[in-house]
Design a protein around this nucleic acid. Structure first.
Lengths: 204, 204
DNA sequence: CAATATTGGACACCAGCACTATCCAAAGTC
DNA sequence: GACTTTGGATAGTGCTGGTGTCCAATATTG
């Protein structure tokens, strides 16, 4: 198929497809002449993935490129690939937290073993600092419950990873890590809404 | 104190403080002359809150304005105020999901009572659609576990809300809803990292 | 075979966002 | 009285995620 059909199939303007090709989010089609290239089913899927990562996933183009590079890279082991995918995915607050200790303490209380320079650890420290600066330092007990709930989720995320093919595993991890985030946040808000309705019953 | 001291105290450039004043994120100081205004401690706190919402909280200026308006609005009941704050906080995917049913079904399975037009419900539907489009439709069981974990968190979020003053309650809800999101996401990634290390033990 | 349409590729351009810089006259400060 | 700072207004910046326009080369159609 040609670019116009590819664009139509994924519901994306042709100009935007060209943009993604330029940005390296989409692999080039097979050239069949100076002004003709052929695209396949896999391009349609990839394009849909790109749209999902950029839109609901909330990734920037640059981050999506890094993430997709991790997806494409031939990996040797699942764990290694997961690590690469995770590292490509910072996306979290860019602020450089001054004090990692509260985050480290929380992780230690859970008994989690994580890399000392894990981006998520930095993000956690930054988020805790922001809460402090905003005048609402969260009590330890609350954080522990958050961590417990997050632990369940992370456990389950990893348990679901398919072990058949490394490539499949990586794709699975990337898609689920990114695209289940909005799901989780939306569910939290819905749960809050429900709980609020039960705790403060009135005619809104 | 004057604008320069306010800016210094919060670690923000003066030009940026002026910008926030223009944008209505920060209430104007008390004018003491044509070219002089006085700011108080509450401006420092508010400015820090604004920075936390815009930076780690990930809100846009427009969204932050809406959220802060909800914080400032004199509310009559806690539940009402929470609803207003929640509604000011969409921030979630702007895509208009075509099919709300999967999201509704998930909420119903949990027994949650939420508004049928809740922004979070739309966000959930959109996120589920994105997963589908990306070729990784999540199994129901996985979603149910996510919902269960989210339920615990939402429950706890609401349980912590102070009931003394409505204003305090609103501020608490807004700050915690927004600023605990990055905490939760970071914790999930850390839990994934830990679980991955346990499931796929090797020398990274 | 000629008229028309489409393509890949290059480049310029655009709108929105969060600031940032400059300027000004009025008002403090030393 | 010189110097600095202020609030307020306006314009400009850098970045991001696209769009629009143009081109010669190639299909496709009549």
């Amino acid at each position: 198929m040609q670019i116009s059909e590819l664009a139509r199939r994924a519901g994306v303007p042709v100009a935007t497809v060209k943009y993604y090709l330029r940005e390296g989010l989409l692999p080039p089609g097979e050239l069949t002449g100076a002004t003709r290239a052929r695209y396949g089913e896999e391009h349609v899927e990839r394009l849909r993935l790109v749209r999902a990562l950029l839109g609901p996933g909330g990734l920037s183009v640059a981050r999506a490129r890094a993430v997709l590079a991790a997806v494409d890279a031939p990996a040797t082991s699942v764990h290694q690939a997961l690590g690469a995918a995770h590292r490509a995915l910072p996306e979290m607050g860019a602020a450089v937290p001054a004090d990692l200790d509260p985050a480290r303490a929380l992780v230690r209380r859970r008994g989690w073993r994580v890399a000392p320079d894990s981006p998520a650890l930095l993000a956690l420290a930054g988020a805790l600092e922001a809460l402090h600066a905003a005048g609402s330092p969260p009590p330890e007990a609350l954080l522990d419950r958050y961590a417990e709930a997050a632990g369940r989720i992370g456990e389950q995320d990893v348990a679901e990873v398919p072990t058949g093919s490394v490539a499949d595993a990586v794709r699975f991890v990337v898609v689920n890590t990114v695209l289940l985030e909005p799901v989780l946040l939306a569910l939290r808000r819905l749960a809050q809404e429900d709980a609020s309705g039960r705790r403060f019953p009135d005619g809104d």
